[in-house]
Design a protein around this nucleic acid. Structure first.
Length: 487
RNA sequence: GGUCCCAUCGUCUAGCGGUUAGGACGUCAGAUUCUCAUUCUGAAAACACGGGUUCGAUUCCCGUUGGGACUGCCA
């Protein structure tokens, strides 16, 4: 039983997708359950449609969570009663207490601690309300004050607590002595620490996959589980996905604010094959996948076993070039019809102008994309994304065709070709005519081809010319060559 | 400052005391091709540093350096 537990910030981070993939894989390969839990305990950060974005992203990437229970997805905000009853139990057992410290009080405490060189936080002597009497509590309450419920920490930093991570092994920390907040006063909702404790226990989570930013609070969480007498789940702290900051030159986590590629929506809008993104991510978590796939042992990431112990511990730099390679390989493996479908689906959603062009002549696009795709060993790999695929073949449309003004045409050659051109020629006949022209005009075969190529496409590099002419059709070919001669 | 994590080619990594340190992306060179893309050959490219332990360390331990995370009534 694994779970992906994002907070609804209106944004799906690539690192979140990575974690969700690990969760989903672990559940899938063991026949377990994969749940989605919305951590919406921060009412201030709530964003409309955020859950829809998360669900939609997961759906598109094929990360299907279990929906057959009435609680899928779970919302922490709807489970308030559960947290409150656990808190009440803690209160009764003297393991938690109501705290009436205000934000200002705490700010002051923090400043003093900093000035004195102490660790910040509410602990030990700084926990003013730790041992309030019943009368004092009632007095505060009568005063209209709403308390936070704090943990009555029994930890002693002099002692060490060992926490087991599936990837990193046993990690030793000083015990936690902070009286962290369990239930917030402003909205009565639990903090992450408390909510995850209750949820992962009651949901029977066996494997908690989360980012390594949680490592520092690991001892607290283990302390909490032990205090409750609950079984601690297996934790897997994944490393971050980083990039080199262009300004500082230093490695850092992919940031929502500065890096468009941190956002999963970016990959969707740019038309990256979701399978390729998943394979790229999956290979970071299970590095043997790539080789197994190339050897033909597995066909997709879903057939490859991901072993928690083998998940990479160091932060990986996001490598666009490698992603491009996965994408090229993936697109090359697609049958033409599927490729056309994917490109159309993308255009329908993200590019109305292209969608209209395609809808106008769907067979045309199919013929274009089918060029040099018949030999499975020699399929062109110049398509990376659906968007870029269309840009790549844009010259097939008159409104997008950009005549090449730089190129110096050999108009003699072009005229000669026009005289002998016949669309119904087979490839050999067609080529023989080009050779004949080359011989006659005293130029290389390649020069004749290049003149035609540039005249037809405006570019100096394209797929097979014969196929291009066939797909374009007689009329367009003649028109463009004439254009080059007269232009 | 404190706590914790991490450290093999440019990048992602394999390695789990003895290896010519392997693979992939990228790069470069060559062959093929009407150009390009493919495809095929080949090449350059790494164990951060210093101490231990050991017959022997990339591998185990310690330290240094470097990078990262956390230090909120955010997750």
């Amino acid at each position: 039983m694994t779970r992906f537990a994002p907070s609804p910030t209106g944004y799906m981070h690539i690192g979140g997708l990575y974690q969700a993939l690990v969760d989903c894989k672990l559940a899938q390969q063991t026949g377990g359950v994969f749940m989605l839990r919305i951590e919406d305990t921060d009412t201030k950060r709530e964003v409309a449609d955020a859950v829809k974005i998360i669900e939609d992203s997961m759906h598109r990437f094929g990360l299907q969570y279990n929906k057959d229970e009435k609680y899928a997805p779970y919302y922490q905000s709807k489970r308030k009663d559960i947290y409150h009853s656990v808190a009440a139990d803690l209160l009764a057992r003297g393991l938690a207490y109501p705290c009436f410290l205000t934000a200002e009080d705490m700010e002051k405490i923090r400043e003093n601690q900093k000035a004195a060189g102490f660790a910040t936080g509410i602990y030990g002597e700084f926990a003013r309300d730790r041992n309030l009497t019943e009368e004092e509590i009632i007095a505060h309450l009568d005063n209209g004050e709403v308390p936070t419920i704090r943990l009555y920490s029994m930890g002693n930093p002099e002692n060490r607590i060992f926490c087991k991570d599936a990837v990193r092994g046993s990690i030793g920390f000083p015990e936690n002595n902070e009286d962290i907040v369990l239930i917030k006063s402003n909205d009565g909702l639990p903090t992450y620490h408390f909510a995850h404790l209750c949820d992962d226990h009651f949901m029977r989570t066996t494997h908690v996959v989360r980012g390594e930013e949680w490592l520092p609070s690991f001892p607290l969480h283990v302390q909490l589980f032990r205090m409750m007498g609950w079984q601690t789940p297996m934790y897997i702290h994944t490393s971050t996905i980083d990039k080199i900051d262009s300004e500082t030159g230093k490695q850092r986590k992919l940031s929502k604010r500065h890096d468009p590629e941190a956002n999963v929506a970016f990959f969707l809008a740019d038309g990256w094959p979701t399978e390729a993104v998943l394979e790229y991510l999956g290979n970071i978590a299970a590095s043997g996948y790539e080789e197994a796939k190339m050897k033909g042992q597995v066909k997709s990431i879903w057939e490859y076993e991901m072993r928690p112990k083998k998940i990479s511990m160091s932060g990986a730099l996001f490598d666009m070039k490698k992603l491009e390679w996965w994408a090229k390989e993936f697109i090359a493996s697609l049958p033409v019809d599927e490729l056309v479908k994917r490109v159309r689906d993308w255009a329908d959603e993200y590019d109305a102008v292209w969608a209209a062009r395609i809808a106008d002549k769907p067979e045309y696009l199919k013929n274009i994309l089918a060029i040099e795709r018949d030999n499975p060993k020699r399929i062109r790999k110049d398509f990376i994304t659906w968007k870029q695929t269309l840009q790549e073949v844009a010259y097939f449309w008159d409104d997008l065709f950009v005549p090449n003004t730089e190129y110096v045409y050999n108009k003699d050659v072009l005229s000669a070709f026009l005289e002998t051109f016949n669309v119904s020629d087979d490839k050999d006949t067609w080529w023989n005519k080009i050779v004949a022209i080359a011989t006659e005009k005293g130029v290389k075969n390649g020069d004749v081809a290049m003149n035609l190529r540039v005249a037809l496409t405006g570019r100096t590099n394209t797929p097979d010319l014969y196929s291009i002419m066939h797909v374009m059709g007689e009329e367009k070919v003649i028109e463009r060559i004439k254009g080059a001669i007269n232009g």
